[in-house]
Structures are given as C-alpha cells and as structure tokens.
C-alpha cells in the first residue's frame, strides 16, 4: 500500500514540477500572442471607428475634448494605467451613452455629459468603461457575440461593411454579461477611490437615471444596456462605504459648466 501511495505521489509531483518548469518560459512572448491580439484589436478599432465616424457627428471642440481628457488623464495617472493606451471620442447625440471599443477607445455621447449633474458622475461612467477596457471585456464580448472566425475575417477584409456596422451596434447598444458588468463596477469604484473622486456620485447617477421618467427612457441607452442600475448603485455604495474618499474635483466649476453648455448647444 505504501508503495502505491509513494508512486501516486511521485506521479503528481512529476506533473506539477513539469508544469512549474514550463511556466518559467515566457510563452506569450515566444508565441507572439500579445502582438497578434494587439494587431487584431488595432485593425478592428480602425474599421469600427471609420464606420461610426461616417454615420455620427463627432464633437471636435477643443474645450470639450480637453476637459474630458483631463478627467481620463487623472483616472489613468492615479491608477497606473498607461494614458496613451486610452483613446476617446465625443459624439454629438442626445442618447445617454458611452461604450468601450477594441484597442482602448472610449466613445462618449454628448447626452451623457448633459445628463451628468456633476463631473464626478461622468468620471464614474468613464471609470466603468475604462475598467471594461483594462479587464479585456471588449474582445471577450465581441468573440462571444460575433464569433472569433467572423472577427478575424473582418480584420482580413473578407467580410462586408454591413457586418462592421453590426459589430459597432453590438458594442454601442448591447450589454456585457452581468458578471462582467459587476466586475467593471467594482473596478470603477477602485479607480475612483484612487483618483480621489467619491464613488457615491457614480451610485447617485445610477439611482437618478433609474428613477427618471419613462418618456426620457428612450434616450437612456447606457442604462437600458446596463440592467439593474438600482442594484448596481447599491453594491457601489456597499463597496465604497469603508473607504473615506477625499473628493478633489478635476475640473474647475466654470470649466465643467462651460463643458455642459458647449455640448448642450451642439
């Protein structure tokens, strides 16, 4: 019996030591997995953004872009996120929406800025979308919804523009899995806390639009694609209650008001 246990244990040790030794090799670099993934994401982003740009009205106002950039830069700097990896564009549209695209691109609708009473509310949504990017949720969602082979055929140019439009629609108007949404929310709380932005404002934003009147619901794309916003607000509060966050505004009040004014008038 002892012999059997010894032999069995030796087999287990042999398995785990082989695994351990092989782990010391940097397979991801050798097999160029990262580069291949990055190239696919870059190409997808290029194609999708070209499609969105032709159908939507892009906001190019320097004050709007610089203000949003200041918010994103602070979030990135305080959370060790490489700033150059996050790109963003503002679209003039009444819908309250923001979504993440492959290759770290954030698309923000002007309706979201209008609906945000405070800059901290907008920062909350930005953190949530940055979390989707950082946690690699975007490609996961596309693989699940569109399929890996279709995505590759899009990037190699063998599929038509209709499919690219459909892919852009998947990103802008469908939600992630409930689990991924929660993961992004919790990460967003972490980002906000580190960036000295009180996460309670983000929770408040969710509460607020959850209770909005039904007639404006047609504009609340971000909420309709992110279900259970009340529940989400509750666990955001729950996750942030133990952290005493000093709230340091990124933008001056007049800059924030000017930003709102600019997007409202466009």
């Amino acid at each position: 019996m002892k012999k059997i246990i010894f032999q069995g244990l030796l087999l287990i040790v042999l398995f785990f030591s082989t695994w351990f030794v092989l782990q010391q090799i940097n397979w991801v670099t050798i097999l160029r997995i990262k580069q291949t993934t990055e190239k696919t994401e870059e190409k997808l982003d290029e194609l999708l953004w070209e499609t969105i740009k032709t159908t939507e009205d892009e906001n190019t106002n320097q004050l709007v872009l610089k203000s949003v950039d200041s918010l994103i830069t602070k979030i990135c700097n305080y959370n060790d996120i490489e700033r150059s990896k996050i790109k963003f564009n503002v679209i003039n549209k009444n819908e309250i929406n923001a979504f993440a695209m492959p290759n770290g691109r954030l698309v923000i609708y002007s309706g979201l800025i209008t609906a945000s009473e405070k800059q901290e509310e907008l920062a909350g949504v930005l953190c949530h979308e940055i979390a989707h990017i950082q946690l690699n949720h975007v490609m996961k969602k596309l693989i699940k919804e569109i399929g890996l082979s279709t995505l590759i055929s899009i990037t190699t140019g063998t599929k038509g523009s209709e499919l690219i439009k459909e892919t852009a629609k998947v990103l802008s108007s469908t939600s992630f899995d409930r689990g991924l949404e929660k993961e992004a929310d919790i990460k967003a709380v972490e980002y906000l806390t580190k960036a000295e932005i009180n996460p309670e404002h983000f929770a408040h934003f969710l509460y607020k639009i959850n209770e909005s009147e039904s007639e404006i619901m047609k504009y609340l794309t971000w909420i309709s694609t992110h279900p259970d916003s009340k529940k989400r607000a509750e666990y955001i509060i729950d996750h942030s209650k133990n952290n005493k966050v000093k709230n340091v505004p990124v933008l001056k009040d007049e800059t924030w008001n000017k930003l709102k004014e600019l997007v409202e008038n466009q």
């Binding site: 092989l22 782990q23 397979w27 991801v28 996961k140 993961e183």
Partner: peptide, 13 residues
Amino acid sequence: IFYSETITNHYIA
C-alpha cells in the same frame, strides 16, 4: 474563449 480569462504563461505551460 467565452469568459474574461486571458492566455497566460501558466495556461500554455
């Protein structure tokens, strides 16, 4: 393939 896991050295090994 379907969830948020990524290809790592641990996985390949």
